[in-house]
């Protein structure tokens, strides 16, 4: 369980997935990827951990992942094999509504 801070970068302990917290609920949450808690981007994962087979649907670079209530939102900075989940429930891919280019 951890309290998440907007703008911080986390990595999966069992795959190459990296995410940035775009929005976070004001509470302690259990955020996992590949069945294991996400760790600080600079931290080294424990060697004895393995990707959980039922949490291996993968992440896609540049996509947003959200919790059902929308309070937690992540941006995938690096793709990997694990599934992002909040308290065991997989996060959903957020569909982006395309905007006209304004720059």
């Amino acid at each position: 369980m951890a309290r998440l801070k907007t703008g911080t970068r986390l990595r999966s302990a069992v795959c190459s997935t990296q995410v940035m917290i775009v929005a976070a609920p004001d509470a302690e949450v259990e955020l996992t990827c590949g069945g294991h808690a996400l760790i600080d981007a600079a931290a080294t994962p424990g060697e004895d951990l393995a990707l959980s087979p039922d949490a291996a649907k993968g992440t896609t670079l540049g996509k947003r992942y959200v919790s059902p209530d929308g309070k937690l939102e992540l941006l995938c900075l690096k793709a990997g094999q694990g599934t992002l989940a909040l308290a065991g429930a997989p996060l959903a891919l957020k569909e982006a509504k395309p905007l006209p280019s304004s720059d």
Binding site: V22, L61, G62, K63, L75, A96, P98, L99, S101, S102, D103
Partner: peptide, 16 residues
Amino acid sequence: VLGSVEFGGAGEDETA
């Protein structure tokens, strides 16, 4: 940028 641009949303032929 995150609120207005889709990552990798441009086609390979696009030039600004």
